[in-house]
């Protein structure tokens, strides 16, 4: 169970996430929607701990992960893997090596520096690729592959980490509809067949409706909607995507007004 308790994270004057409360059960597939800059990416990066919250705690199965450091932090990052909108693979390396880089955190350093991997791990990497119909590209240079292929490689790399949570930050925002479908289906399959908890940021409400049973809406750093897809009415969507009432409005008042309109439904799902 992932518990996010009053988490706040800011960069200078900009508050990316403020006072976020969230509870997610193991095996859920949750979509997060909101305007760009609403704090969706920051929320995922906080869970993976690329960012550290200034306030609040993040717990996984009762273990507090928001204050981990060093070796324990790296161990946590392996369990909560993340994939990105721009895939962020290493373009000059071949596909297989890119997938194997998922194990950087747990392999001894010396052989890894010379790209030496045990036979079993290579086989596992190839099988992960094969599940995503990418096995025929193992020896190709990643930079020559299409966006859809690169995102599937990123998923294979994430799966090689044997994670408990998969965080997907706009995984299909740079893809054409057909490839978006393939990638979203793969993520849903992972959730269904392996029981991996999935949090996926989406820019498209349609996709969120189709693949997620539960949706979270974020606006200006705050969670303003949390409920089953069936509750995602037109007016709810409008509220999530609502612009600032005044262009220069910077205080938290507006958010405080927003929250009562759409009551946070965490309790229902907890």
């Amino acid at each position: 169970m992932l518990e996010i308790d009053k988490v706040t994270c800011s960069f200078g004057d900009v508050t990316a996430v403020k006072q976020a409360n969230l509870t997610i059960q193991r095996g859920e597939m949750v979509g997060i929607i909101g305007r760009s800059g609403s704090g969706k990416s920051s929320l995922l990066r906080l869970i993976n701990r690329l960012y550290t919250p200034q306030e609040g705690t993040i717990r996984w199965d009762g273990q507090t992960v928001s204050d981990l450091k060093g070796r324990e932090l790296r161990a946590w990052r392996q369990r909560a893997t993340i994939i990105f909108q721009d895939y962020n693979l290493i373009p000059r390396l071949d596909v297989l090596t890119n997938v194997l880089l998922g194990t950087l955190g747990r392999r001894p350093l010396a052989p890894v520096m010379f790209k030496q991997w045990p036979k079993e791990l290579r086989a596992q990497a190839v099988l992960e690729l094969d599940r995503l119909s990418m096995a025929d590209t193992v020896f190709k240079r990643t930079q020559f592959l299409s966006g859809g292929q690169q995102q599937r490689i990123a998923i294979a790399r994430a799966m090689l980490q044997e994670p408990e949570i998969l965080l997907a930050d706009e995984p299909v925002a740079s893809l054409d509809p057909i490839n978006a479908e393939i990638v979203m289906q793969s993520i849903a399959d992972i959730n269904a067949s392996r029981g991996i908890t999935v949090l996926v940021n989406l820019h498209s409400i349609d996709i969120a409706r189709r693949y997620c049973r539960r949706v979270i809406g974020m606006n200006r750093g705050s969670i303003v909607f949390d409920g089953p897809v069936s509750d995602l009415t037109e007016s709810a969507v409008a509220e999530i995507y609502r612009k600032r009432t005044q262009p220069c409005e910077c205080s938290g008042d507006a958010v405080a007004q927003v929250q009562p309109v759409m009551p946070v439904a965490t309790a229902v799902y907890a």
Binding site: L50, R77, T81, N88, I90, L104, R106, R157, Q161
Partner: peptide
Amino acid sequence: RQRDSLRATGSPDIG
């Protein structure tokens, strides 16, 4: 971003 994506896998700095 490439460095971040490796950091996110739990890689040590040298990796």
